[in-house]
Design a protein around this nucleic acid. Structure first.
Lengths: 343, 343
DNA sequence: CGTGATTTGTCAATCGGTTGCCAAACGAGC
DNA sequence: GCTCGTTTGGCAACCGATTGACAAATCACG
């Protein structure tokens, strides 16, 4: 140690990032580091007077506990992960937004991981981040059930729009929205509806299809599924021909992106929406921006993000205020892309 | 815990998450833990034979080094952060996507933090995450220059679309796109262009305006700025009246979202695009989805995300392959929202 | 075979917190 | 004033890695 360092860089304890430690606080307050730790984390464990003194010192030093150092002995990282198949799917934005807010509000950090629509990549990604997070939200998992169960043994997991045996999940129940949707289409005179399915590994696509079948049966409307398709713009575009050939007067797509792709292909083919063909999406994430604007089955995506994080926190025992546990409801938002059946 | 646990949960060393440690490897391979650390991180430091033995043991145990434990002595967390003002701004999706890919490719984890368009919240957020990341990308910062400089003293920073004195930045140069844009509009007969500015704290909004002025002067076209505005749909909607009243035949909005809001308000007011009014956006992030589709100045957002992470990594000495350092170019994408001047 | 130079592996300290255990200090009650 | 019970704060081990210093082993070469 050189003497009289004027820069102040070398002052006994060398610090990496200028951040204050509990040792600094302890020194300033004239107590033991362990007392500092207790004062800050276990209210009531130390006397009010000492705690006050320590809190003041901590504030003076702008102390922020090093999360890494804290994670080491406790095993709790105060970090959560959301794993999505594809970041560019607008559906995940809402989820991420809700999750981010809930997490940061609880003092947790959120990390986003993308599996790029690949099951094996997803498993690898999860392996990588698992040691540094306390829990994981599988937002659009392409993993088989067994893999998710295996994962849940070593890490706290919540699934989104996916039901796996013993795993807590946050599901948007398509039934209410779909029921209103079919009523809406039936009222407009539609008698044959096509469903453009999503990826074969998507659990929720199956539920949407089932809800559609069920509602259609009740109303005496014919439905059939076209798919599976990639849940993207091009997926919707390339399905247009089949949908159109099917003779359906209304097409319900697995999500808004596909619905938009479909509308685009329709326009290119000279088929006008909604005069010649009614189009409906799911998630209600972009419909408002277009023209014609898109009728869609709305789900509260932000709320789903919030709730999935709340579930995670509840399981981790980090948060008492567990919100409702039932499925999230959906509702129909009618816009310009649906109209009377041409026949 | 009950005695004689047949589950094998209590086996001498109690492990928190079932993860193997270097101690397990050391035992299995019959060497010292520090030798394991060296074998795995400093190629050549131990004999080939020993390294082989250790690597095999590590593989057998499915070893993944605990990032927290590693971060403690080294101070390197292998985590990067992207801080954005508003997650729902579609412009950030592309950036995040690019950043996420570049980070995970380099073995880094990406965390997203949202400052909700508030400068003070942004500072607080950054304080919170700073200790657990190696570097930060300020994607849409609302912080004053001095604050960013202060931050850069304790953490590696890269700014996006923002120039601050000594701070590395990734900038999309509006000039090429704007120059083509003004030429395009001039060719269509437009003689007066309005610019709908973004938030007053947005550095890049100023640059876009300057580029527009410069190009307009060269072409002998009149331009004027209307703003500042919120960079959102409603920001664009509420600016319509002023834009229309101004007599401009073409409106260039700070971003696509505002352009869409403007088009919507125009439609509601019975002003048709592009016949009565030409509309242009920036970033080219949604233009393709609408109809009429939106003419926009395209920037490679994913590339910007990738590059900002590459910059960060280069500064951290984690990656040699530093990409080009010049500004990112922009180009005009002509779609349906621009047409001949009504006059 | 002996010597010096080099390679290889071990020891132990360290990062910044947390926490079980214990002793000192304190207060109450007789 | 003394004992007993309760707070309160300190000591030290520990989480799982990294790394400087050093000793042991290995090797080259005369």
């Amino acid at each position: 140690m050189t003497d009289a360092a004027p820069t102040g860089e070398i002052t006994g304890r060398r610090r990496r990032s200028g951040a204050a430690t509990i040792y600094d606080i302890a020194e300033l307050a004239g107590v033991n580091p362990s007392t500092v730790s207790r004062a800050l984390n276990q209210p009531g464990r130390v006397s009010a007077k000492t705690e006050e003194k320590i809190r003041k010192a901590a504030a003076d030093l702008n102390f922020h506990a090093n999360p890494m150092a804290r994670a080491l002995p406790t095993g709790r990282t105060h970090t959560l992960a959301v794993v999505v198949a594809d970041i560019t799917n607008p559906m995940v934005f809402g989820v991420i937004r809700g999750a981010e807010r809930a997490a940061s509000q609880a003092g947790f950090t959120l990390v986003i991981a993308e599996s790029q629509e690949s099951g094996s990549l997803e498993a690898g990604t999860i392996d990588n981040i698992a040691p540094s997070v306390d829990g994981i939200v599988l937002a659009t998992s392409r993993l088989p059930d067994e893999e998710i169960l295996r994962l849940a043994q070593r890490k706290t997991i919540v699934t989104l729009n996916r039901e796996v045996d013993g795993i807590p999940s946050v599901i948007s129940d398509p039934a209410p929205g779909v029921s209103a949707l079919v009523a809406h289409l039936a009222d407009l005179g539609h008698r044959a509806i096509a469903y453009l399915g999503g990826p074969s590994r998507s659990w929720i696509s199956g539920r949407r299809w089932e809800a559609l079948m069920h509602a259609a049966r009740e109303r005496g409307v014919a439905v059939f599924e076209i798919g599976p398709n990639s849940p993207t713009l091009t997926g919707g575009e390339s399905a247009f021909e089949r949908a159109h050939a099917s003779g359906a007067t209304a097409v319900v797509a697995y999500n808004d992106l596909m619905a938009i792709g479909l509308m685009r292909a329709a326009k290119a083919a000279g088929v006008s929406v909604p005069e010649d063909l009614s189009v409906v999406g799911f998630d209600d994430v972009l419909g408002d921006l277009l023209s014609p604007s898109l009728t869609s089955v709305h789900a509260d995506l932000t709320g789903m993000g919030t709730r999935s994080v709340a579930r995670l926190l509840a399981q981790l025992g980090a948060d008492g205020s567990h919100e409702g546990d039932g499925p999230i409801t959906t509702e129909l938002v009618i816009r310009e892309s649906t109209g009377p059946s041409p026949r």
